[in-house]
């Protein structure tokens, strides 16, 4: 297991295959917790309404019941939902994040319970300052509850299939004549880099002329440096055209891709 990007955690299986989790940062987690707190407040109102009939019998019993139920709701809300929804509360679901075992294994109830009970310490002195400090100091952006439960919070990738209809395939793409070079690019270019090139192509009309030239010049310089290109591939091709050719071979390689990936579970592109 290793950390690659500041907010990524890569797990290497015994079979030698790696897969990557994108870690959720403090802002995402704070927003999710804010939603959860709002839900708990609403549940608190619900408890008061539900216990209304008890108040007619005994105010004392009703007050005692409200205290107990609210305590159970505030402690049990996250525990129950994270257990039933495989690491997600309502806030986490809306923000697209989930709790994950730090080894990539199945999340256990005891882990969920421990990480949530530790909010008592993470919340010190106020507003989860200890928790945030811990997240900034640990490799997997863990608050103390995550450390104790050996969990981490990851973002659920929701990559929308880019609208490639806006990327008109070039009439002639010199890279397509060199399948081994196209394959080499597919091997070397990371998804982030590919996304960067694609975004540059999609937004090129929003740039002013000088910036447009500069952006594509930088990108072309970088991508040309990755693979040795024969003269006939680059001759007469502008930087912008070269990046469009590259995006074409990267993204038009397979039509069998999902329109949109789902929640925790990726929808099959099949």
């Amino acid at each position: 297991m290793m950390r690659t990007h500041p907010l990524e955690w890569r797990i290497r299986t015994p079979e030698g295959v790696t897969f990557t989790y994108e870690l959720a940062g403090p802002i995402y987690r704070a927003l999710a917790w804010g939603i959860d707190v709002a839900v708990i407040v609403v549940v608190g109102w619900g408890i008061q309404i539900v216990t209304l009939p008890v108040q007619f019998i005994s105010m004392d019993a009703a007050a005692g019941l409200i205290i107990l139920l609210y305590f159970l709701a505030s402690v049990g809300y996250a525990v129950l939902l994270e257990w039933l929804w495989r690491g997600q509360t309502l806030g986490k679901r809306l923000l697209g994040i989930r709790v994950q075992d730090a080894y990539g294994l199945r999340l256990r109830f005891s882990q969920v319970l421990i990480r949530n009970l530790f909010r008592a310490v993470d919340n010190l002195p106020v507003l989860y300052l200890v928790g945030v400090a811990s997240m900034l100091c640990t490799r997997r952006a863990q608050r103390l509850g995550d450390v104790a439960g050996n969990t981490m919070v990851v973002r659920i990738p929701r990559p929308l299939r880019p609208d490639l209809s806006q990327v008109t395939p070039p009439i002639y793409n010199s890279l397509r004549d060199q399948p081994h070079i196209a394959a080499r690019y597919r091997q070397l270019v990371t998804p982030r880099e590919a996304s960067l090139a694609l975004q540059a192509v999609l937004r090129r009309d929003q740039l002013d002329a000088a910036a447009r030239v500069e952006v594509f010049q930088e990108l072309a310089r970088y991508f040309r440096g990755l693979v040795h290109l024969p003269e006939e591939v680059v001759r007469g091709v502008t930087d912008e055209q070269y990046i469009r050719n590259l995006v074409d071979v990267l993204y038009h390689a397979s039509p069998n891709v999902p329109k949109r990936e789902g929640d925790v579970v990726f929808r099959s592109p099949l």
Binding site: V17, T18, R186
Partner: peptide
């Protein structure tokens, strides 16, 4: 492993990564 090493297709790769990650949790 083949996709990661020999080809590039971010969506297919992410889908397989997610599938392997979920199966890994169960099998290991």
């Amino acid at each position: 492993a083949r996709l990661s090493t020999f080809a590039f297709d971010p969506d297919t790769r992410r889908y397989i990564e997610s599938l392997v990650g979920r199966a890994y949790a169960l099998i290991h």
